[in-house]
């Protein structure tokens, strides 16, 4: 670990003041950043500890839910409103990492965690994320866990978060702040696709801090779930995961649907094409399959990860079937 200075911020203004400095990084639970620093992939000069910031989960009058960025993952998953109104989010968080890590990890940190690509982690390998322009050893290497959607010749890494997949499906809004001011951004727009610059992973401005996540009121999200497919039964990153929210009308039609995929792209992948293909269509396996096909039409396999296309297709259908059965 490269030497750094450490400062604790008690409020967002202090944090962003410290965080504007060149080489500063915000520190949440440390579950990813400390590891990356030990690997010297991250070498901040200064850590600004923001775990003292908002740990509130507030239910607002309009039905939305505000979750402070420093709220621990466990606290989100165990919150009664989350469990009852946004089960997809509780399930996604509980499928991630381990109990210990969920007790440490903050919401903000979870969103900003970096890829688990083995070539990103290994400084003997070429990685455009670590060293822009160096090349990518994953494209022709071990890429069983890599992206099938939205990848580029520069990078085929995936975003590892489970929580973010649920947030993407729910249409969560990220609240941001730096010394220049505050703004919001839909979560699905926060993360970038790699294109030619995989080292730029988000649209965050310099010094910008995630202060909160807002879950929009989505009464029909009570019918939602998350399914994670992985190699071990637990404590493993997703090969493919599906977050889904389904609103089925009495006559068996899809009134509305939200669908997002994990483990398939450089960002939590909101399946807009599948959603469009489903709205107003029958909530039937055939339609679910067609929607999955639509979403995966542009999926591009690498040497080892072609199975993910079929796996994603099947998992989408199974999850939607499950929700359709539930709502019947």
């Amino acid at each position: 670990m490269t030497p750094f200075s450490y400062a604790r911020a008690g409020d967002a203004a202090t944090a962003t003041g410290l965080g504007m400095a060149e080489g500063a990084k915000y520190l949440g639970g440390g579950t990813n950043l400390v590891d990356l620093m030990r690997e010297t992939i991250e070498r901040p000069d200064r850590l600004v500890d923001v775990t003292g910031l908002s740990r509130m989960i507030a239910e607002r009058d309009d039905g939305s839910l505000m979750i402070g960025a420093a709220v621990r993952n466990t606290a989100v998953a165990e919150h009664q409103a989350v469990r009852e109104r946004y089960p997809v989010l509780a399930r996604a968080i509980l499928s991630g990492a381990s109990g210990q890590i969920r007790n440490m990890a903050t919401v903000g940190g979870n969103i900003l965690q970096r890829t688990r690509c083995a070539y990103f982690y290994d400084d003997a390998a070429r990685c455009n994320k670590r060293v822009p322009g160096a090349g990518c050893d994953a494209i022709d290497g071990f890429n069983r866990t890599h992206a099938i959607l939205g990848a580029s010749p520069a990078c085929v890494a995936t975003h590892p978060s489970d929580m973010c997949v649920a947030l993407a499906a729910l249409g969560a809004v990220v609240h941001l702040e730096n010394t220049a001011g505050a703004r919001t951004l839909p979560l699905v727009d926060l993360h970038r696709l790699p294109m030619g610059r995989p080292e730029v992973e988000t649209l965050l401005e310099p010094g910008e801090l995630i202060t909160a996540i807002e879950l929009p009121p989505l009464p029909w999200a009570v019918r939602s779930t998350y399914r994670k497919v992985r190699d071990r039964a637990s404590y493993a990153f997703a090969l493919v995961s599906v977050a889904a929210v389904l609103d089925r009308s009495g006559d068996g039609m899809v009134r509305d649907v939200r669908l997002a995929l994990g483990g398939v792209a450089h960002k939590p992948w909101r399946a807009f094409a599948a959603e469009a293909a489903l709205r107003g269509r029958p909530a039937s396996e055939a339609c679910f399959r067609a929607a999955a096909e639509a979403e995966l039409a542009d999926a591009a396999p690498l040497r080892d990860n072609g199975f993910k296309i079929e796996l994603a297709r099947r998992t989408i259908v199974a999850v939607l079937n499950e929700l359709a059965g539930e709502t019947a």
Binding site: G30, T31, D35, R38, Q100, I101, N103, M104
Partner: peptide, 23 residues
């Protein structure tokens, strides 16, 4: 020393955490 095994688990104010990832 990278949050992958749990051997370093301790309780911080009663909550289990991984002490290897905790500065």
């Amino acid at each position: 020393d990278q949050g992958a095994c749990g051997a370093c688990t301790v309780l911080a104010d009663g909550e289990r955490i991984l002490s290897c990832l905790a500065l």
